[in-house]
Design a protein around this nucleic acid. Sequence first.
DNA 1: TACTGACCCATTGACATTCGATGTATCTGG
DNA 2: CCAGATACATCGAATGTCAATGGGTCAGTA
Lengths: 113, 113
Amino acid sequence: MPRSLDLLQGTLDLLVLQTLSWGPAHGYAVARWIERLTGDVLQVGEGSLYPALHRLEEREWIAAEWRLSENNRRAKFYRLTSRGRQQLRAETASWARMVDAVGRVLKTTEQPA
Amino acid sequence: MPRSLDLLQGTLDLLVLQTLSWGPAHGYAVARWIERLTGDVLQVGEGSLYPALHRLEEREWIAAEWRLSENNRRAKFYRLTSRGRQQLRAETASWARMVDAVGRVLKTTEQPA
DNA sequence: TACTGACCCATTGACATTCGATGTATCTGG
DNA sequence: CCAGATACATCGAATGTCAATGGGTCAGTA
């Protein structure tokens, strides 16, 4: 059974951190922003999102606080901590290295000597 | 404990297929080529490689045959099947879409309206 | 006022994959 | 003849994603 491959494993944390770097937001909004920005190429299921959010919170890369959403609903707002901002920088760099490395393999058309 | 993130999950299959598109090779060579090409940014452990190879063979994207290596050792040579070549095209396209999508999120610096 | 749909949180269980450790055997060069 | 590189392979643990599911709240409307 082929994987649905909605997301590359390990990328979700990076995406969430980046999204929160725009300002505090609740989980639902984070998921929607990512989906909208990518034209639904990247889909964020709630079964992936919330474990990720809790994971990031536990590592103190983000912090949570109950507030009222724009629509007056009770919602947990997450914001990036300074350690989270640091982590975001690190993961962004690591992502770029990775993409570049894969790209090198993909554009190679002959057996290396 | 943060993940070591040697490889993004799901990428290994693509990498192996691409490597084999240069011609038949045995597992050990596949791993070395990938590592060399990427300057060790991407590392292919044997505990990841062989399951991947078996997986791809089972799906008939690659086919195996015992032969003698350049060094006169008994080795299992894998080659891309035509279905594998097709799969490679599909995964390459999918990879590009994904990278592009993540890139869009990463270069966004403000909250989308 | 009752309903409906969008919003918002969260958990559970199954599944796939990667990772590190480990084991065997062969060939080559010193 | 021994060390080290080559080459195959498996196992268990850990992790993370995915699909399914559930529940509660608010706004608009019929």
